[in-house]
Write a protein that binds this DNA or RNA. Structure first.
Lengths: 230, 230
DNA sequence: TAGGCCATGTGGTCCAACCACATCAACTAC
DNA sequence: GTAGTTGATGTGGTTGGACCACATGGCCTA
């Protein structure tokens, strides 16, 4: 086993055993190296991996905000992994979009009608309805948050994380696609209407209809922008 | 931007531009360090991350099998990320099981009835039907491969990768659960019957029924073994 | 008492050296 | 001439040490 993997398993064991929890701090790199009888380089490689996995955050300086602290950001890990594999062209964008549709439709069907996240979603829709209109960039940023709020409403952390990561992996792609749209204003108006219909369906407890609307909403956008969504 | 991230983005750019593809080899660490005007340490940290993401594989020695070559194993990245976050207890196992059910039910419904992966699935079922019986470990290993074959049949690489990673993340958990079963032989017999029914439904083109059977199959197993699957 | 300054501890980066390993070519013994 | 051995070469793996940038907190001075 390579040295940094030894460090990795040690840390994972500490996590599993509960001796290290979110918010806690890892020992300093130098002392951890001495404790495990390995070089600081190997400790750093392990920490680098954990950082990429969204498990820790490294901060310089001293004081409570410094050092390497345990966090939990699964979305970051899944997102960069997906993005990299999209770059290798072994994960077609169409498959990502299709997966997003299936996850988000499920979430819309599953979300309880009184989920608190739906209130956030409603507030976001209100912001998008600004009478003076919004720049496309701002609109899309709110759009992302609306869809994530919807996914979170289902209450499944894994689905939420995967949704976020799929979004992140194709974020650049989606931004590029909007430039293909023939008439942004018309599209924005349609998206707004569909958003309200989706939220209303969830609020009415009509999960089946909500799922259908979500599927049509996402697939419609990508088709209009010129990507076959499967 | 930290130095290793510079290396990371350089490599990602090479991948996106197609100058680096699966099967290709990265420049040697020392030459890459010189080329990017950074230390070998930073190059190594970047490669470590890519390795954890399932994007490259590092091999010592010389010759065609050595050096750092580009691969594409998204399952590895997603799997270890999920496993780590399960260790932090911020991803409940129940959510993972629920996600697995939803993905696999979708795959069963979506799989074309003449998908070649179904032949592999059938062969696996045959092996599990061995008249002399199988040790629980062997049975479960075949079971894993059957479910993955089913997921692959849907033809969505992202769903396949996620399925595999979910399996990997809770693999240790599932193995532990089997010891809770009151009567392994009876359970194995039931699982076999259900497997055949699922495959038959897919083969008949009855996706809706296949999805229902898959959901009941997985949830039934976890319930019997003592985990609430949501 | 208020302000600045420095000791301390953290991660970030770099360098130089050495090791283990796998290949391949040159060399040697037959 | 052939087969086996051996060493050169190039790869990643690991180590120790040095120095830097940064943030804090206590000490010292005005």
């Amino acid at each position: 086993m390579r040295t940094h993997q030894l460090v990795l398993t040690w840390i994972e064991d500490q996590l599993s055993a509960g001796r290290l929890a979110v918010g806690g701090r890892l020992p300093a790199e130098r002392s951890l190296a001495e404790q495990l009888k390995v070089s600081r380089t190997s400790v750093r490689e392990a920490i680098r991996i954990l950082e990429a996995m969204g498990v820790v955050r490294a901060g310089v300086g001293s004081g409570p905000e410094s050092g390497t602290v345990v966090i939990s950001d699964p979305t970051a890990a899944l997102g960069s992994a997906l993005r990299l594999h999209v770059a290798t062209q072994h994960l077609p964008v169409a498959d990502i979009v299709e997966t997003r549709v299936l996850l988000e439709a499920w979430a819309a069907a599953k979300a309880p009608r009184d989920a608190p996240e739906l209130d956030s979603a409603a507030a976001l829709l209100e912001a998008m309805d600004a009478p003076e209109g919004l720049p496309a960039g701002d609109f899309l940023a709110l759009d992302v948050r609306f869809h994530l709020a919807l996914a979170n409403a289902a209450g499944n952390t894994v689905v939420s994380a995967m949704m976020g990561s799929l979004r992140e992996a194709i974020q650049g792609y989606a931004a590029e696609l909007t430039s293909n749209l023939p008439d942004w204003e018309a599209t924005a108006t349609r998206l707004r209407t569909e958003h309200h219909a989706i939220l209303a369906a969830v609020r009415n407890g009509d999960g089946g209809r909500a799922a259908e609307l979500v599927s049509a909403h996402i697939e419609g956008f990508y088709k209009e922008a010129g990507l076959a969504a499967g």
